[in-house]
Design a protein around this nucleic acid. Sequence first.
DNA 1: TATGAATGAGTCTTCATTCAT
DNA 2: CATGAATGAAGACTCATTCAT
Lengths: 201, 201, 201, 201
Amino acid sequence: MPVGRTGDGEALPQRLLTVATRLFAEKGFEKTSVQEIVAAAGVTKGAMYHYFAAKDDLLQEIYERLLRMQRERLEAIMADPQPVARRLHLAAADVVVTAIANLDDATVFLQSMHLLPVDRQRAVRAARREYHERFRSLVEEGQRAGTFRPDVPADLVVDYFFGAVHHLGAWFRSDGRLTPAQVGTHFADLLLSSLRPEPAR
Amino acid sequence: MPVGRTGDGEALPQRLLTVATRLFAEKGFEKTSVQEIVAAAGVTKGAMYHYFAAKDDLLQEIYERLLRMQRERLEAIMADPQPVARRLHLAAADVVVTAIANLDDATVFLQSMHLLPVDRQRAVRAARREYHERFRSLVEEGQRAGTFRPDVPADLVVDYFFGAVHHLGAWFRSDGRLTPAQVGTHFADLLLSSLRPEPAR
Amino acid sequence: MPVGRTGDGEALPQRLLTVATRLFAEKGFEKTSVQEIVAAAGVTKGAMYHYFAAKDDLLQEIYERLLRMQRERLEAIMADPQPVARRLHLAAADVVVTAIANLDDATVFLQSMHLLPVDRQRAVRAARREYHERFRSLVEEGQRAGTFRPDVPADLVVDYFFGAVHHLGAWFRSDGRLTPAQVGTHFADLLLSSLRPEPAR
Amino acid sequence: MPVGRTGDGEALPQRLLTVATRLFAEKGFEKTSVQEIVAAAGVTKGAMYHYFAAKDDLLQEIYERLLRMQRERLEAIMADPQPVARRLHLAAADVVVTAIANLDDATVFLQSMHLLPVDRQRAVRAARREYHERFRSLVEEGQRAGTFRPDVPADLVVDYFFGAVHHLGAWFRSDGRLTPAQVGTHFADLLLSSLRPEPAR
DNA sequence: TATGAATGAGTCTTCATTCAT
DNA sequence: CATGAATGAAGACTCATTCAT
């Protein structure tokens, strides 16, 4: 049998992460015991501690996995040779779709980051800020180009938009009226609309 | 000396609530022990349990206090005889200013609601939904009147906006560049802009 | 309003005792809080501590009340100028009827005496021993007179019988098949039968 | 060293049970803290909770152990091809001897069963009732055969006798005048005597 | 007499983590 | 690689009792 793999077709560290993410999203990080995680993954505690030095590491890894993925996708979109409005629309819609596709990760991110030790929080926050800054640069680019209204601070716009994104877990239901793509389009539309220059009056 | 009051000029239940809110916002509900709360309030555990049957009750009460306040303010604004766009702008800006003025409560609300027993969560969610519906009715009114673009679901707009509001705690700093009122105006502007009907193309 | 009395027609100390006895019998001494007792009696804690210096005192008083009553009844019966077998039968049946009539007290007695401080336990035990000795003297009198078999230790007989009596609370139901008087007669019959001298073989 | 065993030559769960039984019998279940139990067993609380999910479980297990043993012994005796009077005498004497040999368990049983959650009480009571019914069937068999007097309800006799047995803990002392076997014989004699048919008068 | 706010010591229980095997 | 028994520190909560009013 391949080392580190189990019959379930997924490497054990991966499986632990997946299971932990689901449980954290369902019941919260602090109310989920290591015992529950390993039981749900079908192994014992020792096995988990072999791969993760601490429960916190699971959380940390979940964050990094999500941030890594979003950063990669954003970079690909930013490199796309399209007008800035189009690029921002693509990026915004993609963030929404990705967040919904990984709603558990996003939920955990939002709900539990404050439970990490402060220095780890700082690291995660720094990574997220960097991501936001990339996004903000798109907005600023459009403002400089006159495509977007200049009278609203770009970072405020970014925080405004990501607030909406982070809040998806609170209301989006996969069996609801709207598909993830539709939500993504609506959100991107709202963002772009709100950035349109004021019409001449 | 009045019963139930201490030298600190505030009734003990109130003081406990204030102190708990601050600690919850700072370190999270789960990482704040009852012992820390009562120590910060200068009393013993027994005193707290005399007023609150459980640690959860503090959380619950914080939520209800916040929701109560916001509902009252919203109602006052909705009753104002102004054009719908004006009323929505006022309401949106006020929500932001109020949320910032009670940033600890709002932060705790966002971070810790999922830690309540499920039935209590339901109660809180129901109250919040009711509040959102009032807000949504403003959007719908404007859509029917042709003031707002009709092609975006009103409830999605509300969730979009309140996501941004709930996220304030993650970035707003009282010593920052913008005053609460300015943030409120910007947020309301962004909301109204995004609802402007598409320009004829 | 008469001092120490309430509208309920019973002096407060009495009512507290009655209520406490019922609760102790239902849920056990340790699982009954002082708060529950005073709530059930419709007063506050201060009122109770005015009459009883401690929760233990309630227990103590319940025991003494029961022992006092049984001792008085036994003395009356022993003074009756009847044959010894008759007196023992009367006494045995009366103990049963009295125990049933005060089943809560008897239950509490049995279940909770060991919770008293050791010195109080000693006092109660001494009183009970004295009572048992009176009973034993009846048995011995019958043995000396040749009415009862002499080959069984009188104190063992007494413990045997009172075991049965103390156990009444475990099975007797007032809505059951047998009346208290019937149970008393049966128990007394069993006792007397078991004391009959062996038939010549 | 064998897993789960300590230098004291007994598996930890067993040792905890033994120690707990002694303490419960001495001071009562409620007045015995988990801390005292684990200290007396020479381990930490965590170790105990590794084997017993709750303090209640210790109690439950003590009961079941005792009931299991008594049921097995009774069955062996009932299968003995002897006259019914002989079988009942054997069974009665054996119950007494066994109860004395496990006086701590029996004492705890009697004193603390009412502290269990109600549903657990029901389970224990059901098991005990079943046991009593076996015993009762012996009495009834003798009544049908004319060996025992028929005018006393068989279940009342059983309750009468087991009352005496349960009460052993209140007076029997191993350093006393009578050996367990002697007490067993006396109790069985008393029981059989009380069941003798009335002599013709 | 009676109140009820407050105390403080104590309770059971949970759980992340370690380590000998 | 993996087990699971055991640790140890911390957690929420209870409750008899006191005392100023």
